[in-house]
Amino acid sequence: MIEQNRGLIYALTAYLIWGTFPLLFSLFKGLPAMEVLAHRIAWSAVFVAIIITLTGKWHRIKAALTNKQLILALCCSTTLIAANWGLYIWAAMNERAVEASLGYFIHPLVSVGLGVFFLKESLSTYQKVALLLAIIAVVYKVTSSGALPWISLSLAASFALYGFVRKQTQVDTVTGLMIETTLALPFTLIFWLFTPVNHFGFNLQGGLFILAGILTAIPLLAFAAAARRISLSMIGFLMYLNPTLQLLCAVFILGEPFTHTDLITFSLIWIGLAIFTGGTYWRHRKDRQKLRPSVTSS
C-alpha cells in the first residue's frame, strides 16, 4: 500500500508539471522557439547527468552505447521527441495551447492506431468506437474551421511514435533520456554557433531556461517511478489530467479563445476517451479475474 501511494504521488507530480507547461513556455513569448528548445535540451542533459552521477549509474550509459541497434533506435526517438518539444514550445508561445492540449487528448487513440498499423493488433469494439469518434472530431474541426488542426495532429503523432519507438527499446528511462539529450546536443551547439543573439544570462530569464530543462526531466523520471508502482488502469485514468490542466491553463489563465467548434471537437474526443478508458479498465479487470485461482468446495 505504501508503494502504491508513492506511485500515485509520483504520477500526480508528473502530470501536474506537464499540465502547467502552457504557463511555463508562455513566459518565453517573443523569443525564438528554437532557442528555447536548444536550452531545454541542454539543461535537461545537464540535470540528468547530475542525477546519473549522484546515483552512480554511468555504467548503464557505457553499456547502452555499445549496442548499435539501440543507439539507432534512440536516434529516431530523439528526432521525434525534439520535434514534439519544439512544436509544443512554439504553440505555447504563440497562443495555441488549446490546440496543443487537443493533441495530447488525441494521443492515446493515435497510439492504438499505430499498434494496429505496425503491430497488426486487433481492435475491440470499444476501441473502434473511440477511434471513429476521434476521426469524426477531426473531420468536424476541418470542415467547421476550414483548416487542418495540424498542431494537434502533429503533437499527437510525434508523441505516439516516440512512445512506440521507446517501447521497442530495452533501456531504462534515465539512461534513454541521457542518451537522447546527448544525441540532440549537436543541434543546440550548431544553433548557438550560428545565432548572433543569445538571450541567456545570469538573470530571471536565464533561470527560466534552466528551469525548463529541469522540468522536462523531472516528470519523465517521476512517471517512470510511478509506472513501476501503480496499475496500468490507474495510469490510464490519470493520463488525462495532463491535457485537461493544459486546456484549463490556456483558457482560464492565458485567456486563449475556446470556440463553439472547439467545444464540439473536444466533446467528441472526450466521449471517445471515456469509452476507451472504460473499456480498457473493464477488459483489464476481466483479465485479472481470469488469472485468479478458482476456489472449489471440498
Rank of each mutant, 00 (worst) to 15 (best):
246 Q>K: 12
63 A>I: 04
181 T>K: 06
298 S>L: 08
209 F>E: 03
247 L>M: 13
218 I>P: 10
219 P>N: 15
63 A>K: 13
75 C>P: 03
48 V>I: 15
142 V>I: 15
57 K>L: 03
173 T>F: 00
230 I>L: 01
93 M>P: 03
225 A>Q: 15
270 W>L: 15
212 A>L: 09
211 L>C: 08
189 L>Y: 13
155 L>W: 07
53 T>C: 12
237 F>G: 07
206 G>A: 12
215 L>F: 14
104 Y>C: 02
246 Q>H: 12
59 H>A: 10
194 F>C: 04
60 R>G: 02
198 N>R: 06
289 Q>M: 13
282 W>C: 07
157 A>G: 00
96 R>T: 02
273 L>S: 03
254 L>N: 05
185 L>Y: 10
54 L>R: 11
53 T>Y: 14
162 Y>A: 07
75 C>L: 14
239 M>P: 07
25 F>I: 00
240 Y>F: 12
231 S>W: 06
256 E>R: 09
135 I>R: 03
135 I>G: 12
167 K>H: 09
266 F>A: 13
84 N>Y: 03
25 F>W: 09
135 I>E: 02
59 H>R: 15
141 K>Q: 15
29 K>N: 11
88 Y>I: 01
175 T>P: 00
30 G>M: 04
17 I>V: 12
278 G>P: 03
60 R>I: 09
48 V>N: 09
233 S>V: 09
292 R>D: 06
202 F>V: 13
